[in-house]
């Protein structure tokens, strides 16, 4: 089975000059954890995920703490988000990432997603335009069939 046989044929994407705030709203409205980032001709530039934003706004020392219960409020995180919300997502997106082709196999897609822990990956056609996306659940569903 090829990627084009089971991918989600959704080319909904964001542009690199859209703001972090717009990206967050887009994710909430679409029930998505991330979106492909495209140029003016629908060529994939990368992806941006909630995780990229959270990583940017949560202080790095938090990751080393076993508990954050003693931290009185979320002011630091909120302030940081306030600082970056109007910045373009180009500053926070993942540019170096694997991209699937419509002609790739289900096995190669599953391997790639499992190996790197991607929640989704963009799929490109022969002309390198965004053709759809593959999520973990789409791969699992394809494996079921």
């Amino acid at each position: 089975m090829k990627v084009e046989d089971f991918m989600e044929r959704d080319v909904t994407a964001v542009f690199a000059d859209e703001t972090v705030e717009e990206f967050i709203h887009a994710c909430v409205r679409q029930f998505r954890s991330g979106l492909p980032v495209v140029d003016d001709e629908m060529r994939v530039l990368g992806i941006i995920t909630e995780r990229d934003i959270i990583h940017e706004i949560v202080p790095s020392y938090m990751e080393m703490l076993h508990s954050t219960s003693f931290i009185p409020d979320t002011n630091i995180t909120k302030k940081r988000l306030e600082e970056i919300k109007d910045k373009p997502i180009a500053e926070y997106m993942q540019k170096e990432l694997d991209v699937l082709k419509t002609s790739d196999t289900l096995l190669s897609a599953a391997t790639l997603v499992l190996k790197h822990g991607y929640r989704f990956l963009p799929v490109i056609d022969e002309e390198e335009h965004l053709a759809g996306i593959v999520t973990r659940s789409v791969i699992l569903e394809a494996l079921l069939s």
């Binding site: 887009a26 409205r29 029930f31």
Partner: peptide, 29 residues
């Protein structure tokens, strides 16, 4: 698309007609 109705439309379109239709949506409030 917008709201829950938009979401329902999106799911219907993707689930039932995903053979040859690609979709691109802009979501509003």
């Amino acid at each position: 698309l917008g709201g829950l109705t938009g979401r329902m439309l999106q799911v219907r379109l993707r689930r039932e007609c995903n053979q040859t239709i690609s979709t691109s949506f802009l979501y509003v409030n």
